[in-house]
Amino acid sequence: MVILAAAQRRDSDGLMATTHNSKDELWRRFALAAPYLWLLVFFLAPFAIILKISLADPVIAQPPFTPTFDATGHLSITADNFRFLLTDKLYAITYLRSVLMAAMATVLCLSLGFPMAYGIARTQPATRGLLLLLIVLPFWISFLLRVYAWMGLMNNYGVINNFLMWAGLIEQPIQMMYTDFAVFIGLVYTYLPFMVLPLYATLERMDLDLVEAAQDLGASRTRAFWDITWPLARPGVIAGCLLVFIPAMGEYVIPYLLGGPESLLIGRVLFDEFFVNRDWPLASAVAIVLLLLLVVPIVLLQRYQASDQDSSA
């Protein structure tokens, strides 16, 4: 059993490794086994099930898929769902669109977030706390309502159009809602704090003397930025970009509320495949492929976070 093995004491440099009495050993085992078991059942097992169902045929029944083993005990699996995903152009285009939209949103977040993080890191320590708080605050306000706020702004008769028409700048309302533009606004708006925070963390740790030293040695401001600031900020840039890109890839609410019917993203396809078409095996296959696309960035992010934790310890 994984759990028992995990709780067994080993030659280790951890503090609690040197437990000598059974009550403490019991506590150690419990503290490890409880969250471990929980995650095995409610996090790892579900993935096995997704994989299993993605290899089944859809049927009209409850639940709507064929069992992996039929009544006679024969293994019955099919790669039809994956084959369908690969051959139907619609899915390939949707995956590609999702990657591009997420990447574009990431770049936009970076170009707005970097100067912001830089600016915050360079203000007085007293105001820094307040500015950071204002970055974090929207996190705590319902995500859904923040996206909703933009609906009122970007409507054909929303605040922006009303204002522009009142100012006489336009005659006809500009179509903003239900376009890719609106989706980008929503994505940047929602994920900007994810970009600013890790960037701020690295920029704040950076020694300002380094930039001055570079300028002292003859580098122009721009040169000093590209030679010193940018390379040193790279860990934060990478973390921020991954933190925006990964969730943006699977985003459902923003494209649903702000995007048009033609701006299909993969999160929405999965949702619709599941709830509207009730094709659970196909939805599972969509999820598996999405997961495969995200494996590299997720592993990258975890490696970054692990090394960041080591260096700050």
């Binding site: 030659d11 440099d13 503090l15 040197t18 437990t19 000598h20 009495n21």
Partner: peptide, 24 residues
């Protein structure tokens, strides 16, 4: 007592403490 020797023995005042816990 925070580390246990890989080999060898430690005695204090005639008592073998090699495997004794820090709190004892």
């Amino acid at each position: 007592g925070f580390e246990i020797p890989s080999s060898g023995k430690i005695e204090i005042d005639g008592n073998d403490v090699t495997h004794q816990a820090p709190y004892d």
